[in-house]
């Protein structure tokens, strides 16, 4: 049964009818045009579909869209109200990403970490990113960029 849901998407109030079997990732991408979360594995293993719900990162491929009724959803697009964040700038400076496909999810995971812990050590950074797979970089330049702005 189709139901109307209301939620905030990166600050914007959204009202949308969804079927219960619609997945959040697909609704965000295909119906609302927020393309930064990507589908990499479709079962929660790779982290490219990461978005935030109420400030916490989730796998949007494992969330039903109908579940976000009344919640606040933020995608990478929603972090940039006042331009690139210091974290994003640091990633550019460090040439952190290669193909860039994992970047949106990685950035959201790092953002969540820094919101909780402004001075994470290297191990804490590694742990926070460990659900976001990257095949290009070996992670080191990503970790370096986060360390650079938290030192």
């Amino acid at each position: 049964m189709r139901q109307e849901i209301k939620f905030k998407l990166s600050g914007e109030a959204i009202a949308l009818e969804v079927n219960p079997n619609e997945v959040l990732l697909e609704v965000l991408r295909d119906r609302l045009g927020a393309k930064s979360p990507k589908c990499g594995c479709d079962k929660g293993d790779c982290g490219t579909c990461t978005v935030m719900i109420n400030g916490k990162t989730v796998r949007s491929c494992l969330v039903l869209a109908i579940e976000v009724d009344g919640q606040e959803v933020v995608t990478l697009e929603g972090l940039m109200d006042s331009g690139l964040t210091p974290l994003q700038k640091s990633f550019i400076e460090h040439n952190s990403f290669q193909c860039g496909f994992c970047a949106p999810g990685m950035i959201l995971s790092a953002t969540e970490l820094l919101a909780k812990n402004q001075k994470p050590n290297k191990h804490e950074i590694q742990e926070a990113l460990s659900g976001n797979l990257c095949r290009c970089t070996g992670y080191t330049p990503i970790i370096d960029a986060i360390e650079a702005i938290t030192k």
């Binding site: 550019i92 400076e93 193909c99 970047a103």
Partner: peptide, 17 residues
């Protein structure tokens, strides 16, 4: 720094899907 760095950290980079 990469000339495509901004596209990639901002989500502007478009992939096939």
């Amino acid at each position: 720094v990469r000339i495509d760095g901004k596209a990639k950290v901002s989500g502007a980079a478009e992939f096939i899907d």
